[in-house]
């Protein structure tokens, strides 16, 4: 339950926020920006129409022609986890970086100090207790489906993250049951394992992240499974950890 002091602080913070519209930024400048944006629409529309008329070139044929060797039937998954696995690995690294940056700005390394929020109404609570298990089930389905049809680690991870957001919005703080170390480990997990498998292949006289073609499907599924968990955990932690009142202006920087 929020105390009177919390409410007073909230009111003070609300008053400090400047309004959406700041008249000072100038009507003339905004008008010029509008004209510029309109001209850009015309220019980009011409470029877009020209681009849409051209034949698809580049990597498309190459991607579809070697689908048999990739270990999966869905060409999008083949691009993500096989041909361009370096990109995907680095994108998992971007997620790790985002979480690190968020923790650094919040001056903490776990979610222990995230304040509790009030529980929602009956409908919200009941609805979420039906939806969250369904979303977790759906994430598993999307992950399995990704090898042969649209779906895969990123979609499944996003769904897991959304389930985490729903848990938080209904004040079911499941993250309190997990230590900060475990959460951080889960987020780094897929980035680290992806790199380790890549290095392992190098020891086997292959290039970095070049799967053995006979076993490519198994490696891809393993990495997708780990990536799903990491993406879900990262999105969940980013949503929960960015809560505004984990620090306040008066609080001194912590040294640990």
């Amino acid at each position: 339950m929020p105390t009177g002091r919390d409410r007073a602080k909230e009111a003070e913070m609300a008053a400090a926020i400047t309004p959406w519209e700041t008249a000072r930024s100038g009507r003339a400048m905004r008008f010029l920006t509008g004209i510029g944006a309109f001209l850009l629409v015309i220019l980009l529309a011409l470029v877009a129409v020209d681009l849409m008329d051209r034949e698809p070139g580049g990597l498309t044929r190459a991607a579809l022609d070697s689908l048999d060797e990739s270990g999966v039937e869905n060409p999008v998954t083949a691009v993500l986890l096989n041909y361009r696995s370096m990109d995907t690995w680095l994108e998992l690294g971007v997620l790790v970086l985002a979480v690190m940056a968020m923790f650094a700005l919040q001056r903490c390394s776990s979610l222990d100090q995230v304040p509790r929020i009030e529980r929602g109404g009956y409908v919200l609570m009941r609805m979420s207790s039906v939806f969250v298990p369904l979303m977790i089930l759906g994430a598993g389905y999307l992950l399995w489906r990704g090898t042969h049809a649209p779906g895969g680690a990123f979609q499944a991870g996003a769904l897991l993250g959304a389930a985490g957001v729903m848990l938080r919005l209904t004040a079911r703080d499941a993250f309190r049951a997990v230590s900060g170390r475990t959460l951080r480990g889960l987020i780094v997990l897929s980035f680290a394992c992806f790199a380790l498998t890549g290095l392992g292949f190098m020891v086997m006289n292959r290039r970095y992240l070049e799967y053995p073609p006979a076993r490519a499907d198994e490696w891809i599924f393993l990495i997708e499974l780990l990536a799903t968990l990491s993406i879900g955990a990262a999105l969940w932690v980013l949503f929960v950890g960015a809560h505004p009142t984990t620090w306040s202006r008066e609080k001194q920087p912590r040294t640990d």
Binding site: L59, A63, V76, E91, L95, A98, Q155, A158, L235
Partner: peptide
């Protein structure tokens, strides 16, 4: 074409994190 689609899929997740 799978190549732009793959870029969008990772791009969305990275955009949310950013």
């Amino acid at each position: 074409d799978p190549v732009p689609q793959a870029m969008v899929i990772t791009g969305i997740v990275v955009a949310v994190a950013a």
